[in-house]
Nucleic acid binder design. Sequence first.
DNA 1: GCAAAAGTGTTCTAGGTACACCCATGT
DNA 2: ACATGGGTGTACCTAGAACACTTTTGC
Lengths: 221, 221
Amino acid sequence: MYHYDYPHPAITTDIVIFTLAENELKVLLIERSNEPYKGRWALPGGFVDIDEDLESAALRELKEETGVTGIYLEQLYTFGKPNRDPRERVISVAYYALVPIDKLHIKPDSDASKAEWHACSSLPDLAFDHPQIVSLARDRLAAKMDYSTIALHFMPDKFTLGELQRVYETIKGTPLDKRNFRKRVLTFNGINDTGEKRRDGKHRPARLYTFNTTGTIEFIK
Amino acid sequence: MYHYDYPHPAITTDIVIFTLAENELKVLLIERSNEPYKGRWALPGGFVDIDEDLESAALRELKEETGVTGIYLEQLYTFGKPNRDPRERVISVAYYALVPIDKLHIKPDSDASKAEWHACSSLPDLAFDHPQIVSLARDRLAAKMDYSTIALHFMPDKFTLGELQRVYETIKGTPLDKRNFRKRVLTFNGINDTGEKRRDGKHRPARLYTFNTTGTIEFIK
DNA sequence: GCAAAAGTGTTCTAGGTACACCCATGT
DNA sequence: ACATGGGTGTACCTAGAACACTTTTGC
């Protein structure tokens, strides 16, 4: 038992974990096995330990749910309406993360609870204020697409420019001109031609590129 | 006394309150009258009540310290390193606010503690992790200057384009071309010519403009 | 009449957009 | 040989940057 002179709220982190699969932007959801909202889908998340940094708590949740580490993670917003959780006052520091396309198979099924990727275009009814959180995360991601290199964090270690263009087209929802797209992304710092090529189909092999992912994003223009 | 099965952190809000005076960007600081950091300067802020929304807590602090209401306020970031406060685990949801030039006289001296405006260019040693908070707030403000109408929230109800240009020049730290500046700001939605003019000195009177401040900012370009 | 800030257009430049064909491979 | 995605250059257009003089007032 812990005692305080004044009432204290509980602190959680919730994470909007994005990935791209089947040419759709997807988020990882957990089916709740306890009340409240038992049986409803919710964002992965949990309580922050009393000696744990907020970002560490988010990284821990991320690892527990997906098994991935070393990916892009950014604080999104803190949600603290007094009745957002029916049990007690809970303030949630929301983060969002980007999982590269090739790392998502690892284990979306850690503990007993069911975890699944859901297309952003058709999400189920979410628990708590999680619809707001997802919505804000999508807005932030869409905005950063225009003025940063954030999209590169969806890419595997080596990728072709065609793959990268499909990522942009999927998130923005519009087709892009191939020549203009290539001119633009090749001006980004950190994109390098490996010299290697990949043959995958009955067409000309594509050059493979890498991105210097220092875990950060670069601002452009 | 309040009891919990698990330890709970305390939650505060800290606010970076900006204004412009004497052609300088300034922030409001409070001299701490209690330990820890007694006698040091710190951001205004305080504990969030258990049934209080985060933004309401920030607005309450803002009103207590400056007497102003209805000004621009935005959540900045949540700071939660385990030892950022030596007393107990304290997580701070930081906000920043913009006080119009003509409203800052009201009362920067609410309770017993001393409150003063300090130029951003020469801040004293701040308590806790407040240097980081101020620094992030300045970065955010500078960034929003480029792609939003946030600067208009520094303006009084009626202002001249010359005054507005000096605000931009002060925050950005560079002189701007008068003709290009006017062309640009007059494309913003919400800026209207009142038809009135102001005479204040031995020169041609200036047109007075207003801004439709719905409390929000508009994104441009 | 002179000092001081308000007010006003045009030219130039650079970055973004539009656009069509050849290349290397698998079947 | 043909289908498939990879790879490349130029012309146009628009938004931002550079730039100088006239107007209205107070003293």
